[in-house]
Computed example of a mutant assay.
Amino acid sequence: MSQEEISAEQVELEELETPEVDELEALRAERDELRDKFMRALADAENSRKRAERDRREAEMYGGSRLARDLLPVYDNLKRALQAVPEENREASAALIEGVELTLRELTNVMTKHGVTPISPAVGDTFDPQLHQAMFEAPLPGTKAGQIIQVATEGFLLHDRLLRPAQVGVSSNTAE
């Protein structure tokens, strides 16, 4: 074979290989593109699954917050009813008082069972704006500024979320 024949044969082979090589490169590019789309779709599906699971857990834990918030005045009224009975009438109203106490206890048990816990600050505790709502400020001798001087109503948490802040009076004494 002469040099010209070999050269012509190589040109023919290159011409035959070029479309196949181009087609092979196009298929590889398409494969890579489809793999990328597949991985993105898989990641989106996993993110959607995680988001749905988180939403389900939150709905399970906090879905009853409206009902719980609506029951808090019932709790408050039962406590007020017990506090309103004068000492001299306690014996005469023993059965009624016992019934109100049992109802209050049952309500408290049900609320606790569903994750509602009371926030019961005491006089002298430090005011915490995350858990307490200041209803008034007043200077009270013998207290420091920011101390709770009166508790108007208890607050409540639903698991770790504030359902209702405790309503308190706070000392406004200035540091001496």
Rank of each mutant, 00 (worst) to 15 (best):
residue 97 I to F: 07
residue 94 A to S: 09
residue 98 E to K: 13
residue 155 G to W: 00
residue 82 L to I: 10
residue 32 D to Y: 02
residue 44 D to H: 08
residue 13 L to S: 05
residue 70 D to F: 02
residue 17 E to F: 10
residue 172 S to V: 04
residue 171 S to H: 07
residue 20 E to Q: 14
residue 51 R to W: 02
residue 75 Y to P: 03
residue 70 D to I: 03
residue 41 A to T: 06
residue 150 Q to R: 15
residue 73 P to F: 07
residue 35 R to C: 10
residue 140 L to E: 12
residue 159 H to W: 12
residue 116 V to T: 13
residue 135 M to N: 08
residue 143 T to A: 06
residue 73 P to S: 05
residue 18 T to S: 12
residue 72 L to S: 01
residue 26 A to T: 05
residue 77 N to W: 01
residue 148 I to H: 03
residue 62 Y to W: 10
residue 59 A to M: 12
residue 69 R to P: 00
residue 72 L to M: 10
residue 26 A to D: 13
residue 33 E to W: 02
residue 79 K to E: 15
residue 71 L to Y: 15
residue 12 E to V: 04
residue 117 T to K: 11
residue 166 A to C: 05
residue 22 D to K: 14
residue 43 A to F: 08
residue 36 D to Q: 14
residue 121 P to V: 02
residue 31 R to Y: 15
residue 52 A to R: 15
residue 5 E to F: 00
residue 27 L to D: 03
residue 86 P to C: 01
residue 51 R to H: 06
residue 83 Q to D: 13
residue 86 P to S: 04
residue 103 T to F: 03
residue 30 E to W: 11
residue 68 A to Q: 11
residue 110 V to A: 08
residue 14 E to H: 07
residue 157 L to T: 08
residue 107 L to T: 01
residue 168 V to Y: 02
residue 152 A to F: 07
residue 74 V to A: 14
residue 72 L to I: 15
residue 37 K to Q: 15
residue 116 V to D: 13
residue 29 A to M: 06
residue 60 E to Y: 15
residue 30 E to D: 14
residue 61 M to F: 11
residue 129 P to K: 12
residue 39 M to F: 14
residue 121 P to E: 08
residue 146 G to W: 01
residue 90 R to L: 06
residue 111 M to N: 04
residue 52 A to G: 04
residue 8 A to M: 00
residue 40 R to F: 02
residue 156 F to R: 00
residue 126 T to Y: 03
residue 140 L to V: 15
residue 76 D to H: 11
residue 71 L to A: 10
residue 154 E to P: 07
residue 105 R to W: 12
residue 80 R to S: 14
residue 18 T to D: 06
residue 109 N to E: 13
residue 37 K to Y: 08
residue 42 L to P: 00
residue 96 L to D: 12
residue 142 G to A: 06
residue 75 Y to D: 13
residue 95 A to L: 10
residue 111 M to E: 04
residue 79 K to N: 10
residue 129 P to F: 03
residue 141 P to F: 07
residue 124 G to Y: 07
residue 175 A to C: 09
residue 20 E to V: 14
residue 123 V to C: 06
residue 78 L to A: 07
residue 40 R to D: 05
residue 163 L to T: 03
residue 97 I to N: 03
residue 58 E to R: 08
residue 148 I to Y: 11
residue 85 V to F: 05
residue 59 A to Q: 11
residue 72 L to D: 09
residue 104 L to Q: 06
residue 145 A to D: 09
residue 128 D to Y: 07
residue 115 G to A: 01
residue 1 M to L: 04
residue 69 R to W: 06
residue 123 V to W: 04
residue 45 A to D: 03
residue 34 L to H: 08
residue 124 G to Q: 12
residue 121 P to I: 01
residue 16 L to E: 15
residue 47 N to H: 09
residue 27 L to A: 06
residue 168 V to W: 01
residue 147 Q to H: 03
residue 125 D to C: 02
residue 82 L to T: 11
residue 8 A to E: 00
residue 162 L to G: 02
residue 132 H to I: 04
residue 34 L to C: 04
residue 71 L to M: 15
residue 173 N to W: 00
residue 55 D to T: 02
residue 85 V to W: 07
residue 159 H to M: 01
residue 64 G to S: 03
residue 73 P to T: 03
residue 173 N to L: 05
residue 122 A to K: 13
residue 142 G to K: 04
residue 104 L to W: 00
residue 35 R to H: 06
residue 157 L to D: 00
residue 9 E to N: 00
residue 48 S to Y: 04
residue 105 R to P: 01
residue 75 Y to R: 15
residue 14 E to P: 00
residue 117 T to D: 06
residue 171 S to L: 10
residue 135 M to R: 09
residue 6 I to Q: 04
residue 150 Q to N: 13
residue 113 K to A: 11
residue 103 T to D: 00
